[in-house]
Design a protein around this nucleic acid. Sequence first.
DNA 1: ACCTCTTCTGCACGTTTGTGCAATCCGGTT
DNA 2: AACCGGATTGCACAAACGTGCAGAAGAGGT
Lengths: 319, 319
Amino acid sequence: MEGSRSGDALRAAQMYYLQDLTMNAIARELRTSRSTVSRLLAMARETGLVQIQVNNPSERAPALEQHIRRRFGVEAHVVPVADSVSDSDVLDRVAIQAARTIGPLVDSNAIIGVAWGSTLSAVSHHLTRKQTHDSTIVQLNGAGNTQTTGITYASEILRRFGQAYGARVEQFPVPAFFDHAGTKTAMWEERSVRRILDLQRRMTMAIFGVGSVGSVGSGIPSHVYSGGYLDREDLEALENDAVVGDVATMFFRADGTHRDVLLNGRSTGPDLDELRRVGRRICVVSGESKIHGLRGALAAGLATDLILDEGSARRLVHT
Amino acid sequence: MEGSRSGDALRAAQMYYLQDLTMNAIARELRTSRSTVSRLLAMARETGLVQIQVNNPSERAPALEQHIRRRFGVEAHVVPVADSVSDSDVLDRVAIQAARTIGPLVDSNAIIGVAWGSTLSAVSHHLTRKQTHDSTIVQLNGAGNTQTTGITYASEILRRFGQAYGARVEQFPVPAFFDHAGTKTAMWEERSVRRILDLQRRMTMAIFGVGSVGSVGSGIPSHVYSGGYLDREDLEALENDAVVGDVATMFFRADGTHRDVLLNGRSTGPDLDELRRVGRRICVVSGESKIHGLRGALAAGLATDLILDEGSARRLVHT
DNA sequence: ACCTCTTCTGCACGTTTGTGCAATCCGGTT
DNA sequence: AACCGGATTGCACAAACGTGCAGAAGAGGT
């Protein structure tokens, strides 16, 4: 009767996915062209009208996932990827699957902390829409940096999350690192900052990647280590502190400790003890260079859910 | 690593549905042919590895469904079907969509009562598999009839349900109608029968169609009225009692009453008061001839969920 | 009314997907 | 070892599908 766009999309989706009609048949019933139906269906998928879930019966879940769960105490989602695939393709595919895995976990009234970085950026491009009420996306750590595109970069990521889930977005308008720990202390008393910190304390979900210092010189260093956020001195300090990686610019060692890492006093990321209080903490990892950082993050118990590519999963287990 | 059939199916499903790879790409990664991948995916869908759901945002759910919910107090699932489609195609499409709508509602530890008839038969052909623990399918009303294929017919339906959900199947080994009400009373004391009745009392879900006597002579009468279950005398008795339809061979009038319908004393279907105690009662209806029976069933409050074709939904509302 | 800018539509084409069929593989039996 | 029946594979072809493009249809503005 009515021909509203999303009404048609719903009808088309039902006919296609629930009745197994072909697009041609649907086009005839809706009195339009097949290509329009194709587009309606695409829209239905993107807007979350249609949800496709792949659930692995946990009994015989892939050995890798079970193994990781037992050994590290996190729910693992291994993204199947053949070894031959290039690193940037791996990232893409992990990101797509991560986005679709996260979707169903997002509730109404959620407060979702989101970090920034190349991994999260990739994820943010593939989020599937899902309508929620009264949800908030909050930035986990500052990003205004001294050099380049940091701000738009981080805010783009947040904006995409906000749009996908129909949520308010709260940016954290501070640099990634302060130059002086004292400035941080001062800023932390500011009302504008306290509002964000308060939101962070009430997070119901956090989503982040990991940075990894890698075996020195070998790996591709993650953003923080190469992006001009830190100068030579800082990097030396990290080495002295035996840091292996970071989550939202909070650094930790291989054994998971982070308390007396010097740089953390100037970082704007959430204290890791506080992060650990969040109910659902999703860590997305792609690529072999991240493995050391990931180990540290797991030792620190930062994640409840881990989404990673098959290669990394293997390496994580086999040693 | 391993190449187990269902393991590959899971990998393929993840790559296809979560990573948007083409079957060709997947075939290369799994070192097999594209056609095999196509078949793996088909299997993943059939076995419930992949679940696709279409959710209509209840705010702006199609007006028809809202209207039906308000007026009749049941959750309506209207199956979109153009008017031009033939009756048997409508049945097919309602059946497919019904099967996929029921799927997600089935839990472990469920006791599911299932009726028989052409509608349920059609539904049973399209069930998507779903693994559950400790569930039971129980036959709602007897089917052994005096003439023909009744037994295999009903038991086939039950078998399909049982297989789809990995559930035990409990048949009800009695005829649809007794010739003498006394025999029923006697049988109802038998232990074998009481076991079934006990299960029925503990049902968590019931699935049934409706029979409809239609405007005399016009509609296609449903099985019960044409299948040789009832003789001329019985049919006259029904007419005298102003019966408009039945659910699981229990008859009722347009106003929903059923107490003193003579034939019910000899029917093996569940008493309607008892049926109404079941938590989830799903009624599947297709085709215009059912409309009178459906009205009665709704008046009697027999269903909590109603799955029906668009044409019937319109007719139900517009008058 | 006219123009402009945007959104939507159907076509045409290349790509992707389903499936009948013959060949092959595999497990069990004689 | 030879045989057999059923399951599984890849091929080849037809059907179904996605998408760039050019034109149509709307929405606004002057």
